[in-house]
Structures are given as C-alpha cells and as structure tokens.
Simulated scan of single mutants.
Amino acid sequence: MRTAVLRVNVDPTKDLDDARLAAGRARLREQAGERSVVIEDAAGAVDSREIQVLVDTTDAGMARREVVRWCAGVFGTVPTVGPVTFLSRGTDADAHGVLAGFGLTGDVERAPDASGFDVVSVTLRASDLDRVPESRVQTALEAALNCEVRILLG
C-alpha cells in the first residue's frame, strides 16, 4: 500500500480566527489515530491554514474526498486539496503505483547486481508504450525506486 500526501487548505476563505484554527488542528490530531492517518504542518506553508495529511491508500480519489469531508466537519469550512502526491520507500508497491499513475500494469522483478545494488526490471506491453513515452516511465520509476530500472517489453 502506498502513502498518499494530501496538502489541505482547511480555511481557503480565511474566515477562521487563530483560536478556531488551533482548536480544529488539535481535534484533527486527536482523531488521526482513529483514522490511521498522520497530520503534519504543510511544508513551506505560508500560514496555519494548510496541513498535510498522510494516509495509506490505493485510491487517491477516495482519500481526497474523505479528507475533505473530515476537515469540513472539524473546521466547518469548505477545504481545498492540492494535487495528491505519494511518499516513496522504493518498494515494489511504489513501482506498481507509478505504473498505475500512467494507466499501465506490468510485472516488477527485483534482483541485486554484481555490486549488490538493486536492479528493478519492469515488463510492459509494447502497446502501452505507444501511449506513454518509455522515457517518462523510466524516469518516474527511477525517481520512486532510487535504483536502476530496466524496462522490458513483453
């Protein structure tokens, strides 16, 4: 399972004062354990209205809807969510997630090279690369896995 990172502006209209924002953030943190999520201050946030929610999910769209509903209930606002990104731990699940982001499926195999470093071989259908440039897939996989990636056609 992958970890989605949702950056949420809980008060885009700036109607809440500092006390209500602080109370809402405290309530979110209290409820986070019940929901198996992590609440963080948004990296580079310009004010306290932005948070990051980390949630393990296979469905980013559903996670986005649930987080908006949850934050709306806590703050009484209409929160907005930016693009969903994912943490990468270099796992095969991350590789499958990257492929899914391109609308692809493939086989992922991991083996050490002569120096003991991981080499990940990803087998894709040749017809899939008619839609998505191989270089984009290669770059995204290498960034997510932080290792050598070989794309094979099957």
Rank of each mutant, 00 (worst) to 15 (best):
L141W: 05
T80N: 13
G103H: 00
V122Q: 03
M1G: 15
C147D: 07
V8R: 02
S135N: 10
T91A: 08
E109D: 11
R20D: 15
V137M: 02
P12Q: 00
C71T: 13
A45G: 03
V78E: 15
R35E: 10
S48H: 13
Q31S: 04
G116N: 06
A140P: 04
C147P: 04
R65P: 07
R29F: 09
D130M: 12
A63D: 07
I39H: 06
S127M: 05
F75N: 01
A26D: 14
Q138H: 14
E40L: 08
R2Q: 13
D113F: 00
A111Y: 10
H96K: 07
V137E: 03
V38M: 12
R110Y: 05
A114C: 03
D92G: 11
I151T: 09
V5I: 12
R89M: 13
L54D: 10
T85L: 11
C71L: 04
L28A: 10
G97P: 01
G24M: 03
T91K: 07
V8A: 06
D92C: 07
Q52L: 09
V8S: 05
G24A: 07
R69S: 14
E34A: 15
V84F: 01
D130S: 13
A60D: 13
G101F: 07
L6D: 10
A42G: 11
V38W: 12
A32R: 01
T77G: 08
D107C: 02
G33E: 11
L129K: 10
T58Y: 13
D56Y: 07
R89K: 14
S121D: 15
L54F: 10
R27Q: 14
V98Y: 05
L104W: 01
G90C: 08
L145M: 04
A32P: 01
V74M: 03
A100K: 04
V119T: 07
D113L: 00
G24F: 03
V149G: 04
D11C: 01
P83W: 08
L21A: 01
R2S: 14
K14G: 08
A143T: 06
A42W: 05
D15R: 15
D92T: 13
A144Q: 02
R29Y: 10
P12V: 00
T105H: 08
P133C: 11
S121R: 15
D107L: 11
P12D: 00
D41A: 09
Q31L: 08
A72R: 05
V37F: 01
D15T: 14
G82A: 12
G116Y: 07
V10Y: 01
A4H: 05
G116T: 04
V46R: 13
R25T: 08
R131A: 14
L6F: 08
S135Y: 10
Q52R: 12
T58D: 15
V78P: 02
A93M: 05
V132Q: 13
L28S: 09
L6N: 09
E30P: 01
L124R: 02
L152D: 15
D17G: 03
T58C: 11
S36H: 11
T80Q: 15
D59V: 04
M1Y: 14
F102D: 02
D59R: 07
F75R: 01
D113K: 00
N9H: 11
V120R: 00
